[in-house]
């Protein structure tokens, strides 16, 4: 039986390495991004194979989904920056039945003439042959060294027994959530800070441009969005709640809700009002602030920071996870939108 599994592993790893190699070696950025998203999905399968469903969920939602969306929108922005005023007038495309008088109508008409030109931003020079072999030697050598070192390691169980021993006290009965939100809560808190910091950094660079994603003409997308949004929100909440006893949790739920937000901002970009900057800032910081505030209770009363009293552990963890989910979803949408809202600088 494990011969079949071994074969599956070898094929999967070969596939992963192949996709990664093709992705990094391609000269067309769009192809590289698509390959990268495929790589993310294959990776999710690998995590399932390694009996880590939570991580597979996160990888699919965040690694492939959110990162893929960010990459695609960045490519669109680069294309928009590289050649904003393109080409000559030509036959205009069939009238767009639903097109509202968006500012982009003329831009859309313009770039319809030479479809290929738009992609000049999306290609990049192939790698110069000069330093090729030295780079291959360095990375190959590093790979072999790593493998040799890993081969010498024996197969201990790691901290699994320690976690199992304290599961009864952790307030949840799913290992990973217990580690994330109780045993190593400090890592998770700093991780929320990291997400927040990425948002602040993106905001500090400048104001966000008019969303490049032009609403596709026709009723199909708005209709699909109307259908998918509620389902996404319900799924997100379900994931959040299920995290305490089954694979799921704040980050996966946050990613799903973030994806819903991105979908909403893509489908109807212009009718979406910029949120009040003060509320947005507080919303983005709420998750981590709540987490720290509850942690302070442990500092003053209990033995150390971030200690949950035994009987209150589950409700506390649930509150923290909700806050974290909202903040992560908000931050991911903000990162997708790009810079800070013009209202902030008023």
């Amino acid at each position: 039986m494990n011969a079949a599994l071994l074969a599956f592993d070898v094929v999967l790893l070969a596939g992963l390495l192949g996709v990664a190699w093709r992705c990094l070696a391609s000269t067309d950025l769009f192809r590289a991004v698509v390959l990268f998203i495929t790589f993310g999905l294959l990776l999710a399968i690998a995590w399932v194979r390694l009996e880590a469903p939570d991580i597979a969920l996160a990888e699919a939602a965040i690694g492939a989904g959110i990162t893929g969306a960010l990459l695609l929108v960045t490519l669109e922005r680069l294309k928009h920056i590289m050649n904003p005023h393109r080409g000559d007038a030509g036959p205009s495309p069939p009238p767009d039945p639903v097109a509202s008088d968006t500012g982009n109508a003329d831009a859309e008409a313009r770039d319809a003439r030479d479809p290929g030109a738009g992609n000049v931003a999306l290609s990049c020079a192939p790698t110069p042959a000069r330093g090729r072999w030295s780079a291959v030697a360095v990375s190959g050598g590093l790979a072999l060294l790593l493998m040799a070192t890993l081969a010498t390691q024996d197969h201990g169980p790691g901290l699994q027994p320690a976690v199992a021993a304290h599961m009864d006290v952790s307030g949840v009965d799913h290992g990973i959530t217990a580690v994330l939100l109780n045993f190593r809560a400090w890592d998770t808190l700093l991780e929320l800070a990291m997400v927040l910091l990425a948002g602040l950094g993106a905001w500090s660079l400048g104001r966000h441009d008019a969303l490049p994603a032009r609403p596709a003409p026709g009723p199909v997308l708005p209709g699909a969005v109307r259908l998918l949004l509620p389902v996404a929100i319900v799924t997100g909440v379900y994931l959040l709640w299920a995290g305490s006893h089954a694979p799921g949790g704040a980050f996966q739920a946050g990613a799903v809700l973030g994806a819903a937000g991105i979908l909403m901002s893509l489908a109807r970009p212009h009718s979406l009002p910029d949120p009040d900057p003060r509320l947005l800032r507080i919303g983005v910081t709420a998750g981590a602030l709540l987490f720290l505030a509850l942690g302070l209770w442990g500092l003053f009363a209990g033995p150390a920071l971030l200690t949950w009293p035994r009987n209150l552990a589950y409700p506390l963890i649930l509150i923290i996870e909700t806050g974290a989910t909202l903040s992560i979803a908000l931050t991911l949408v903000a990162l997708f939108v790009g810079g800070r809202s013009p209202r902030e600088d008023a």
Binding site: D28, P93, P94, D96, E108, D111, A112, P115, G116, N119, S123, A216, P217, G218, V220, L221, A224, L227, L228
Partner: peptide, 24 residues
């Protein structure tokens, strides 16, 4: 099903309005 249908429609419409996304 829903996602597949929507995506297919979107790709088709874009190709129809902007021409084949040629491969170089």
């Amino acid at each position: 099903l829903a996602a597949g249908a929507t995506a297919a429609h979107m790709v088709a419409q874009r190709t129809w309005t902007h021409g084949e996304f040629e491969r170089r």
